[in-house]
Design a protein around this nucleic acid. Sequence first.
DNA 1: CCGGTTCGATAGATCATGACTATAATGTCA
DNA 2: TGACATTATAGTCATGATCTATCGAACCGG
Lengths: 301, 301
Amino acid sequence: MNLRDLRYLLAVAEHGHFGRAAEACGISQPTLSVQLRKLEELLGVTLFERASKSVVPTAACERLIGHVRTAVAEADTILDVARSLRDPLAGRFRLGIIPTLAPYLLPLVFGPLRDALPALAVEPWEDQTAALLDRLRAHDLDAALLATEADGPDLAGLALFTEPFLAALPPDHRLAGRDTVSEAELAGDMLVLSDGHCLRDQVLAACGAPGGGSQGGPLGGTLRAASLSTLLNMVAAGYGTTLIPGLAAGVAQDAGLVLRPLSTPAGRTIRIVHRASYPRRVAAEAVGGVIAGRLRHFAAP
Amino acid sequence: MNLRDLRYLLAVAEHGHFGRAAEACGISQPTLSVQLRKLEELLGVTLFERASKSVVPTAACERLIGHVRTAVAEADTILDVARSLRDPLAGRFRLGIIPTLAPYLLPLVFGPLRDALPALAVEPWEDQTAALLDRLRAHDLDAALLATEADGPDLAGLALFTEPFLAALPPDHRLAGRDTVSEAELAGDMLVLSDGHCLRDQVLAACGAPGGGSQGGPLGGTLRAASLSTLLNMVAAGYGTTLIPGLAAGVAQDAGLVLRPLSTPAGRTIRIVHRASYPRRVAAEAVGGVIAGRLRHFAAP
DNA sequence: CCGGTTCGATAGATCATGACTATAATGTCA
DNA sequence: TGACATTATAGTCATGATCTATCGAACCGG
């Protein structure tokens, strides 16, 4: 059975006249007659009683026509809804963001995103890299802002900006007077984030430690801060030093910390990552573009 | 847009696998791929995100799929309802019957009709010939039992049985002793029905009067009985004589009348009449057949 | 690292069918 | 009866749905 034929049926029922119904459908009268007869044969029911001057729906047709109207209306609804979904820069856009980035980036880009992509409802989701990758692969996220490379051929990423790592010191720290600080000098009393934060691994790597393992070696003692905010407060309280990403500089200074560039600059590159097969790639690229544009002055040397 | 393609969409959504979905649809996998891509192009929306080991509905697909299910379900409903309507010997059958026939015929045939055509809901409608013809032509009746020929090329009729006219006399009438009665002898004090009853015209014609006109001539005086029942009671009360159709004989005898055959037999033929274009002709013929079978012993010579 | 497997996409051939034009058949009306 | 209106039929054509065969990419086990 064909939706087209159902539309023909409705046209004949409406006009009570094959010729005018055919005209309304944009087809010739013989085509309408043939198709309607086929439909009648398919259904096994005579739909219209044709007399010389009248075409009247049969009782069977009356019983069916409500369902026919519903089916055709629903098909039209499908087309309408599809039309409204056609714009890739519209609809929900679930964006994962790592915790060491979200609090400092979102306030900067939320407004510009709303302005540049008003139809796109960006919904941030904050979690650590591994969890975001899981959700991304499970189609629970459209994209994620990560500080690591896309970690498989099923994912694709686009670099947006690079933020430098800065040494964060208590004001009374012995290195606070320097213009630049070397990582080796920091290593002795450096505090790091808890496992799972990519920033932890990157900071350890920058300081020459064997990154990744849960064993921090000589670094950081027993402290494993759950959030960058906690870490900053610990440093401000004089428990040690740390490295922070550039975007957190404002908050760190507000907390009373002294920030110094590293003598051998290091940093991390923020990427927007999505599934390689993600069909709304343009949306991800548009979001990335807006963020990159807003963050251009952080571009790495 | 095609219902077939919508079914394909549902199959892919259900199986998450093109090959198995194609098998479920009874088509080859390439056909499914091509048709689904065409649907996506028509809608302007990507429906599934294809990756190497997964086929996942997009957000757009999730928004659409409810409507798709509804449309397909409604189409299936159309097929189901049509199947249930396929039997022409089922459903309502609105049957017009003239007033001089209905009270005497219906008690005889209602049971047999229910037995022979249990799925056919015969709904009697009692009115005079002209009104029945109007309703028939207006598609308000499926058929009518009339005592006249089908009166136009747009109608078709089937003779069912013939009932003789009988002279109905008061028991003390001067002719009550005869074996047969001639129409001429009756004419003097014959009572007739009011205008519109076909029986009136036929009785007048049988008695040699110029039938049809509202002017009864010497016949019937001023009495114009509205129903055969009234007429019988008037005759029983001694106000005159009349001719009655054979099926009313039982009731007439119960009313105490003397019935006598006519010396030159006359009668009327009952037909089932329907529109020439009526699509359930078999239902009309089946109803007619049951009635004719029940009335076979009334068959005219 | 490599051959086998899985799975969707593509190409080309085939065939069903929806569409057209022209015409017939039928009933209506003057 | 002839002119008109209306639906049905016949014949032809083009679109498009389907098939088989094959490709390409990703994954997997040795």
